[in-house]
């Protein structure tokens, strides 16, 4: 019965509470980005646990690979699709919640009961094993490239396959050739000639004639009015478009006041 030291005990209790809270946050949060961040929290806690238990390499890999790469993947995909879909917590399948919770609780009890009931041997600790190879990384390497070599090769195949698979799945085959800039310009003018409301110069990027480099601040048209089209439609729909400062014309006096420095005029206008 190996006892852990005080430090580890403290780490364990704090970390376990944080990770459980994070897991609960993952399950119950409405906004998906919050859920992703809760998961990151959990993973970080786990990384600490790994390091505390002597699996140093694994802890680092947990942070680098899991939290760093995998969760970033998640967040990229969230950006692409997830922001719009707000998940309501109302259950649509009849009886799903009522069945799921008891089952899951039962499973949990079974698992904990198994652990409690099992005749677990005494904790040996990984120090000796780590020391065998002269450090955790070296011992792992010794084991990885000798006994688990075949699994290693197979996992490389898995990785290659998954990368290829992802490319295949998300590939969008072009059915028509991509228009060059000249061609799309010609097309724009043709459509404008037919009477369509199309902007001849193309849409402005956000930040053009803008005071801010932010996505949610509209750009200004040459006559000083904000361009709705310069803000992402999503943000427009969400009504999170920020206010703007109207751009004063060069040399114009506003309300009798002389043109002061930019900053003063800006403060004044903002208060309007």
């Amino acid at each position: 019965m190996g006892n852990t030291g005080h430090g580890e005990t403290f780490l364990f209790w704090v970390g376990s509470i944080i990770s459980i809270l994070g897991a609960l946050g993952l399950i119950f949060s409405k906004k998906i980005v919050h859920a992703a961040l809760c998961l990151c929290t959990v993973m970080l806690c786990l990384a600490f646990f790994y390091m505390a238990q002597g699996a140093v390499f694994l802890g680092v890999v947990q942070i680098v690979v899991y939290t760093g790469a995998v969760m970033m993947l998640f967040l990229f995909v969230l950006m692409l699709i997830g922001i719009e879909s707000q998940d309501s917590l109302v259950e649509t399948i009849r009886g799903q919640r009522w069945l799921a919770v008891p089952f899951v609780l039962a499973f949990g009890f079974v698992l904990i009961g198994v652990y409690a009931h099992a005749n677990l041997p005494e904790f040996v600790g990984t120090d000796a094993a780590n020391a065998k190879g002269g450090g955790n990384v070296q011992s792992l390497a010794l084991l990885l490239f000798s006994r688990y070599f075949w699994a290693f090769e197979v996992s490389s195949a898995v990785l290659i396959t998954s990368a290829t698979g992802a490319m295949v799945l998300t590939h969008r085959e072009r059915t028509v050739p991509r228009k060059s800039q000249r061609e799309s310009s010609i097309e724009r003018f043709e459509r404008w000639g037919k009477g369509e409301k199309v902007s001849l110069t193309g849409l402005p990027n956000p930040g053009v004639y803008a005071q801010h480099n932010a996505v949610d601040t509209p750009a200004l048209l040459p006559d000083g009015s904000p361009s709705e089209a310069s803000v992402n439609a999503t943000l427009r729909g969400r009504d999170t478009v920020r206010g703007f400062r109207p751009l004063p014309l060069p040399g114009a006096r506003r309300n009798g006041a002389a043109v002061a420095s930019r900053g003063d005029a800006g403060n004044e206008e903002v208060s309007q």
Binding site: L120, P121, E122, T126, A129, L140, S155, V158, L159, A166
Partner: peptide
């Protein structure tokens, strides 16, 4: 792995991470 004093558990955890990464990608 800490309990048994063998690093096999960590190796398996390592492979789990590899497979989880691949799975996340797909």
């Amino acid at each position: 792995s800490r309990m048994h004093g063998a690093l096999d558990g960590q190796i398996i955890a390592f492979f789990t991470m590899v497979v989880a990464a691949a799975e996340v990608v797909v």
